[in-house]
Nucleic acid binder design. Structure first.
Length: 272
DNA sequence: CTGTAGACCTGGAGGC
DNA sequence: TGCCTCCAGGTCTACA
């Protein structure tokens, strides 16, 4: 589920319910996520006031005054808002954060690749966040930046833009879609692409991510008491998952290849 | 440093 | 129905 737009929409969806609230209770039903949820976290969080909610890459950061919760949704995680904690948790709903406004933030994650961590220090300094590349929606990501950072990278461009240390938050769907919009083959060696084309790529990344956030954001009113899935899924992809189907531009069947153990899709005519 | 494969998990889809 | 294989929106870690 979560690529950057989904994470941003989740962040926006939970933020208004969290700001200024005190954590009344934290309940764990299964602490075995990617890393175990700290055993004493329920004690740590007791009575803490939430000051801010932010996002860095695909991490959601919750400022709890004396420290931060770091949330990652992994492959299948989602957060939703309940009006009370009375609703029975299902098999894959692993933790609840109960607030003094009566609301509960509940985490669901069937595959348990997600994470919930606690840090006392600046979360940007946390080992998982400190080496992240720039935010894709910031001006730092542009053709010049990509050209510089990819100079010595001979592996495929798609692998590079999915590398969080190069640029953070570009997942498999948006890597494929952005490369289509930029007319670049996912297999092309990263250091063999001109700065002009990399400029097109950075523009395409920003455009596709922004569009997805807009589409998802338009159904934000449904976030409350839903599972957080939004209109973003319904958008039509140009190449992702369209193996053998005609390219929307030239009708050539979309090709599928595997790069870095991930499915990659492109048009052999429109992308060079 | 660079690049690649494996690891962590569950569930859905499709073939036989 | 049941069993098997493959696939899935992520990314850290180990190793060549």
């Amino acid at each position: 589920m979560p690529e950057l737009p989904e994470v941003e929409i989740t962040k926006q969806g939970i933020e208004p319910f969290l700001l200024g609230q005190t954590i009344k209770q934290f309940t764990v039903r299964n602490r075995k996520l990617r890393w175990p949820i700290p055993v004493k976290l329920h004690q740590t969080l007791q009575n803490l006031v939430i000051q801010a909610v932010s996002r860095r890459g695909k991490y959601i950061l919750i400022d709890c005054t004396v420290g931060w919760l770091i949330i990652h949704l992994g492959m299948s995680g989602s957060l939703r808002v309940l009006t009370s904690k009375e609703e029975t948790a299902s098999k894959h709903e692993h933790y609840d954060i109960n607030l003094n406004n009566g609301m509960t933030i509940r985490y669901r994650d069937p595959r348990r690749f997600g994470a919930l961590l606690w840090t006392n220090k600046d979360p940007e300094k946390h080992r998982l966040l400190t080496n992240l590349g720039p935010e894709p929606l910031h001006d730092v990501l542009n053709g010049r930046f990509l050209y510089q950072v990819l100079r010595k990278k001979s592996s495929p461009i798609k692998i590079q833009i999915m590398n969080n240390h190069i640029v953070t938050g570009v997942g498999n769907i948006y890597a494929n879609e952005s490369l289509f919009h930029a007319g670049i083959r996912p297999t092309r060696q990263a250091n063999r692409i001109s700065q002009v084309r990399l400029e097109r790529l950075s523009d395409a990344i920003k455009k596709t991510l922004k569009r997805a956030i807009e589409v998802g954001g338009s159904s934000l009113q449904d976030f409350y008491q839903t599972d957080g899935t939004t209109g973003y899924f319904q958008q039509e992809y140009k190449v992702y998952g369209r193996t053998g189907e005609p390219c929307h531009t030239c009708k050539t069947p979309i090709k599928r290849v595997t790069l870095g153990q991930r499915s990659s899709f492109y048009c052999i005519v429109c992308q060079t």
